[in-house]
Amino acid sequence: MEGSSSNKFSLRRLTGSVTSRFGVTALLALAVLAPFLVQNDYYIQLCTEILIASLLAISLNFLIGYTGLVSLGHAVYLGVGAYAFALLTKNVYPSMWAGLIAAGASCAILAWFMGVFCVRLAGLYFAMLTLAFSQVVYTVAYYWRDVTGGDDGMLGIPKPEIGIPGAFSISLESFTNFYYFVLFIVAALIFLAWKIANSPFGRVLQAIRENPERVEFIGLPVHRYKLYAFIIAGTLGGFAGGLYSTFQGYISPDLLYWTQSGEIVLMTILGGMYSFLGPAFGAGMLLFIRDTVLNFMEYWRIVVGGILVLLVLFLPGGILGFFEGWASRSSIGGNDGDDARS
């Protein structure tokens, strides 16, 4: 594979160390046991938020890490998904599943529409257009006061109970129940994302990232593949938005603002964008740092910024990316000739 020998970070590392079968099982077990380990409603909430943020960061990584498209407007899916969930469950029909499907579907349509324009551009122009689109949606949410509540946002978004009508139902008002519900949804979606990323389709995306011209010459429709990646990223982001909406019970246009997009990019880079679970790790770290530092001072962004500078200088593959690389280098034989590099 001469083509990938110039590739500094191979996605084959997905199969190594932390993301190995053992690693994933351990992670899942930790997630299932988390409410018993933390024993405090606040930390159960924090874990819930981390799960949602993980899904969001992994969805963005479909664009950044896999396809090589740096989007600066990913918050648009968080926001639109959140508003779709809120509008449907508050005004039309209070159903958790309907709300989540509305969140995902509305973002799929939005991503398709935005993608048609965006995927024809590359690099900075792509980033700028995604930013512009997200700011347009932000402005609409801000000024369309009758529907979105403007800057005051929307309040009292329900946590509808789940179950089969007439047979059984589970209330999600308790912090623990809600955590497990989110864990179920997020784990299922992340598994789906992993399947897609490791399918032949996912391989094509990585090829596009490495060398779009060559993929074009092979005869594959690069734009269409990019569009599909864009729609997958948007839809997953929309589900994260729907979950966030019901989790917080309150949303405001801040969710759509470009700084929110920046935060998602930050999570991705922090954890490692060339590792499948890296962004999820970054999301967890970012929220954990914010929570910890906020107890001492209000300038938590300085700490995150400082860590980011150190990372870019010393661990350019992100934190999880570094550990995975380390594990694959130190294992005898390595994989894919990874050890031959560096």
Binding site: D41, Y42, Y43, G153, Y250, S252, D254
Partner: peptide, 14 residues
Amino acid sequence: PASSVRTARRLILR
């Protein structure tokens, strides 16, 4: 609003 709600939760629950 988002960080206000989050911080409020932390103060009350934790």
